[in-house]
C-alpha cells in the first residue's frame, strides 16, 4: 500500500510537471478504446511462436475467440504456450473509467512516430495489475506498446503491430516480453537420471522470454456463440 502511494505521488508530480491533467488522459484513452469497443466479437487464426530459454517448442497454430465484454478463449489442436494476460486485458481495464486513475507522463518517438505515454493505476487493491504504462499513437488512436506490472507475474511488455484492421484496434501481431525464472525441478521427479545439464556452464540465462503471436483471417462482429467459450 505504501509503495502504491509512492508510485501515485511520483506519477502525479510528474504529470503536473508537464502540464497534463487526468481528464486529458481519460479522454485520450476513451478515443483509443472507442475503436475496440466497436468490436463485439471476433475469431482469428493465430500463430504462436514462443522464444523462451528453457522451452523448446515449434510455432503452434491456434484459434482465438473473443466476445464482448470479457469472454476470451484460445483453442489449439496441440499444446501452445501463452502469456497469462489475455490479449484484451488492457481494453477491459480501460473500458471501466471508474476502475483506474490515468496520467499522461510524457511523449517520445517510437519508430519515427510521436507517441504519448500514459500510466494507469487500478483503484482496486485486489487486482493483480499494479500499474499499466501504455504508449499511444495519438495520430491513429492506437496503443503501440504497453507495460503491465503485476503482483504475480512481474512485468510484461507488449508490443502491438497494426495493419488493415487498425480502425478496430485489432493487431496483426503482438510481442509479449515476459520475465522468466530459471526452470528447475528435481531430477528424481523428472526421472531425469544420468543426464547432463542442458544449460551451458557460465552462460547467463536470459531473464525474459518472448511470445510472438501473429494474427490472420479476422472474422468479427458476426455474432459468436457462447459455445466457443465453454471449457472442454
Amino acid at each position: 500500500m505504501k509503495n502504491l502511494f509512492i508510485v501515485v505521488l511520483v506519477l502525479m508530480t510528474k504529470s503536473l510537471a508537464i502540464g497534463q491533467t487526468a481528464p486529458d488522459a481519460i479522454a485520450l484513452l476513451r478515443e483509443v478504446n472507442k475503436k475496440f469497443a466497436s468490436v463485439k466479437d471476433y475469431q482469428v487464426d493465430a500463430l504462436i511462436d514462443a522464444r523462451i530459454s528453457f522451452l523448446k517448442i515449434l510455432p503452434q497454430r491456434a484459434k482465438v475467440y473473443f466476445k464482448s465484454p470479457d469472454k476470451f478463449r484460445v483453442k489449439s489442436k496441440g499444446i501452445a504456450i501463452l502469456p497469462k494476460q489475455n490479449f484484451d486485458q488492457l481494453f477491459q481495464l480501460m473500458a471501466d473509467e471508474k476502475a483506474y486513475m490515468a496520467f499522461v507522463t510524457g511523449n517520445e518517438s517510437q519508430n519515427g512516430k510521436m507517441v504519448t505515454i500514459l500510466n494507469l493505476i487500478p483503484l482496486s487493491d485486489t487486482t493483480d495489475l499494479v500499474l499499466a504504462k501504455i504508449w499511444v499513437d495519438t495520430a491513429r488512436d492506437l496503443i503501440v506498446k504497453s507495460q503491465l506490472t503485476t503482483k504475480s507475474n512481474g512485468t510484461v511488455l507488449i508490443d502491438y503491430f497494426h495493419g488493415n484492421l487498425s480502425d478496430y484496434a485489432l493487431p496483426d501481431k503482438m510481442i509479449f516480453t515476459i520475465d522468466v525464472k530459471r526452470f528447475k525441478i528435481p531430477k528424481a521427479i523428472a526421472a531425469d537420471i544420468n543426464s547432463k545439464s542442458t544449460a551451458e556452464p557460465n552462460r547467463k540465462e536470459p531473464k525474459t522470454g518472448q511470445i510472438i503471436i501473429s494474427f490472420s483471417n479476422y472474422i468479427f462482429n458476426k455474432g459468436l456463440s457462447d459455445e466457443y467459450f465453454k471449457k472442454d
Binding site: 491456434a62 489442436k77 501452445a80 521427479i189
Partner: peptide
C-alpha cells in the same frame, strides 16, 4: 505439479 515452474508465468493451452 511438474509444470508449476512454467505455469507461474505462462498458460499451457491444449491437451497436455
Amino acid at each position: 505439479f511438474i509444470t508449476t515452474p512454467v505455469q507461474t508465468n505462462f498458460v499451457l493451452e491444449g491437451k497436455i
